[in-house]
Every structure is written in structure tokens, then in C-alpha cells.
Simulated assay, not measured.
Amino acid sequence: MNDEIPSLFDVEAPSTSTVQAPLPVRSEQVAEIRKSFELAGVTSQDQRKEIVESVTFRSVASLRDLQAVEAHRILKVIKGMQTSKPNRKGSAWDNREEDTWIDKL
């Protein structure tokens, strides 16, 4: 083979690898998490901590200890909780979605 043409497998490794540290949580994210917890009806600190730690897979002492990406995931989980349980009062008959044959009479 010709020595002047580089081989496909002669790839030089980068001399320095730059690994960025994860971004810390922003104040706006902390405020949004707190507000979302209130809207979801999660008032107990133990419940809040359980939800946060179930998303981060680690022990978290304060919301300020979160990373920005973790805060984003926590917000998605809390907002999913808000939409999954509608705030309905009354019986199943009162909360039915469609009219029955009785309603059409």
C-alpha cells in the first residue's frame, strides 16, 4: 500500500477530552417545581422528596442540589401527575363523558 494515504483505521485519538459538568438548577426551575407541586396537591415534604429521588435515582437534600436536566425531568413527572387525575366531584354517573339513552329521552 501507499504510505502517503492514511488508512481507515489510523485515526488519532483526540489529545484532550473536554467533559462539561452538568448545569446546575436555575432559580426559575426551583420556583416552577414548587408551584407544580402545589398545583398537583403534593404538600408533604416526604412525598415531594420521594418523587424527586425517584426521578434522580439519588438522595437529594434540597432542590438547589439538582441539576438542570434533573429539574426538567421532575417537572415532566409532576405535570403528568396533574393531568392523570382530573379534579372531579360527584358520582361516576354524574361524571360520565357521553350521553346515555336515558339522557336522549
Rank of each mutant, 00 (worst) to 15 (best):
P6C: 15
P6A: 15
E12I: 14
V69A: 14
R96K: 07
V30H: 01
I33A: 00
Q82Y: 07
P24A: 04
R34N: 08
W101Q: 05
V55I: 11
R34L: 07
P14T: 11
V19M: 11
L105C: 00
F57T: 12
E12V: 14
S91F: 04
E28H: 06
S44Q: 09
S44H: 08
L63E: 11
E12C: 13
L23T: 14
P86N: 04
V11D: 08
S27P: 08
Q20E: 13
S84V: 05
G80H: 08
D3P: 15
T83P: 04
D103N: 07
D94Q: 02
E50L: 12
R64Y: 15
V42Q: 05
A68N: 11
S7A: 15
V52K: 06
T100S: 02
G90K: 01
Q67C: 09
I51W: 04
S17M: 10
I78V: 06
S15R: 15
D94G: 08
E53L: 09
A31L: 07
T16A: 13
V77M: 05
Q45H: 12
D103Y: 04
N87G: 06
S84M: 05
E70K: 03
V69Q: 12
A40S: 03
L75E: 03
E97L: 05
A13L: 13
D46C: 09
R34G: 02
H72P: 08
D65L: 09
S59D: 12
V30S: 02
T56E: 07
M1L: 14
I33P: 03
P22Y: 09
R64M: 13
R64T: 15
Q29R: 05
A92V: 11
Q82S: 09
E98R: 11
E98H: 10
D103G: 01
N95V: 00
W93H: 09
P86K: 04
I102Q: 08
I74Y: 03
W93R: 05
K49F: 04
K76P: 06
V19K: 14
D94W: 00
F9S: 13
F9N: 14
S91K: 02
K89G: 12
S36C: 05
V11T: 11
K104D: 00
T43G: 10
L63M: 12
Q82A: 02
R88N: 05
N95L: 00
L63K: 11
G41Q: 03
S84Y: 05
F37T: 02
A68M: 10
L105P: 00
R48T: 10
V42E: 11
A68R: 07
Q82V: 10
F37R: 06
K89L: 06
V77Y: 04
S17Y: 08
Q67R: 11
S7I: 15
E4D: 14
V52W: 03
G80L: 02
T56Y: 05
K104F: 05
A61P: 13
